[in-house]
Amino acid sequence: MRKTRCGGILIVFGFGIFIYIMLRFTMFDGDKTINTIMPESEIKVNAGKESVLGYHLKKGDQSMHYTILPPLLHIKSYSIVFYNMPSWMTLELTVLDSTRCPNLSQKCTVQRGKDQFEFSKGVIFYGEELPKLCPQKKNGQVWAFFSIESPFLYSVGPQWKNKFSWTITYRRDSDFPCFYGKIKKRETPLTQNYSQIFERKTKNISWAVSNCKTFSKREEYIKKLQNYIDVDIYGRCGKFQCGSRSAGLTDCHKKFAKEYKYYLALENSLCRDYTTEKLFNFFFHDLPMIPIVYGAPNLHEYIPKGTYINVMDYNSPNELAKDLMRIGSNETIYTQYLKEKDRYTAEGFKLEEVLCPMCVKLHETDSSKVISDINTWIWNGTCIKP
């Protein structure tokens, strides 16, 4: 009895295997067999539509088209966190995808706060407020050093060696440059009544400043310049007052542009690529006056010639003053600077210009690159002392 039952089970099992093999390698159309399977195409991906994989089933002269849905494509998503985001920054971007980042095929989320540190692949540290204790770096994390200020204004301790892979700074050789502004040539130059602008200017130089002792020693230079030409100093470091301090456009800027021929756009440090809103405001807001600049030694590489006067081009304050008097007394020469400047405009920094390429790189890299000493990168041949 047991042998009969076992034999029956074997027969059923064997018949099942036979049916499976027949269905696996043949397909039936009525009472005829179609015996050739030919792939038609690769998976086609269309945004917002289902992807379809097609096949032709061919029998002699006849063919039939079948479609099947492939498995859903897996979209990776990584988290980027600002470990210690500065108080002056606001975070409006929370999701990075192809709608915000044209070159991004994957996805990233952007968050702030130490509580997200454990779960983030990309971690951004604000260099001017680094914590004294360096957190334990997690496997697979990529750390980025972020600063828009001169290295004279902060310090980085030895505990941060061999931690950072990427840099986000004002320097153009950063992994992700973070400029105060970018100059763009206008398709059609701005035009103004330049004669009227020139005629209403009755004063020479204006300067609004609150930091009275700087690494560039700009205050010492201007003190010497005042021996040869009038310089009206507004704010904490001068005797004139004009509203509250702001990095953007103020009524003071409008007043200066109307009454003065020149404005001092002097940086607190003399570092490569370090050019702040002091100069870019002239291009952001089309201010009709000539900026006198003192800052990045390589300024000429990214600010158009003929749109500014550079202190570094003169051997002494006396020499600069003489040239300012010459330019300021000649309408043709003076307004040529304004006309040249009006051929350009500027764009302010957008956070996605850093975060989008950073997200792309997070999906591409194995995070093996590490900067051995971030201080060496920050300081090596980048700044000068007057």
Rank of each mutant, 00 (worst) to 15 (best):
G7F: 06
G7R: 11
I9T: 09
G14A: 14
M22Q: 09
I34Y: 07
P39Q: 09
E40W: 05
G48F: 02
L57R: 05
K58W: 00
T67D: 01
T67H: 07
I68T: 07
L69Y: 11
P71V: 07
S77P: 00
F82M: 08
M85N: 00
M89S: 06
T90L: 02
S105H: 06
Q106G: 04
K107G: 03
R112F: 01
G113M: 09
D115H: 13
D115R: 14
D115Q: 14
Q116P: 00
F119H: 15
S120M: 10
G122V: 11
K132R: 14
P135L: 05
Q136C: 03
K137S: 13
K138M: 14
Q141I: 08
S150Y: 00
L153Q: 12
Y154P: 10
S155I: 04
F164G: 07
W166D: 02
T167M: 07
F179T: 04
K182Q: 15
K184F: 10
K184H: 14
R200I: 09
R200V: 10
T202H: 12
N204G: 04
I205L: 13
W207Y: 10
W207A: 08
W207F: 11
A208R: 05
F215I: 01
S216T: 10
E219W: 07
E220D: 13
Q226K: 15
Q226A: 05
N227Q: 15
I233D: 00
C237W: 04
Q241R: 07
G243W: 11
L249C: 13
C252R: 03
C252Y: 02
F256I: 15
K258Y: 06
Y262I: 10
Y263E: 08
A265W: 01
N268Y: 02
C271I: 04
D273I: 09
D273T: 13
E277A: 08
H285G: 02
I290F: 02
Y294R: 14
Y294F: 12
P297L: 10
H300I: 04
Y302L: 11
Y308M: 15
V311H: 04
D313S: 13
M325A: 09
M325I: 14
R326Y: 12
G328V: 07
G328S: 09
G328W: 05
N330I: 10
N330Y: 03
E331C: 12
T332K: 11
I333A: 03
T335Q: 09
Q336L: 06
K339T: 06
K339L: 04
K339V: 07
R343V: 01
R343A: 01
Y344R: 05
E352T: 05
E352R: 06
V354Y: 03
C356Q: 05
K361W: 01
E364D: 13
D366M: 06
D366T: 15
S367E: 05
S367C: 14
K369G: 00
N375R: 14
W377R: 04
W377M: 10
W379R: 05
G381Q: 06
I384Q: 05
K385W: 01
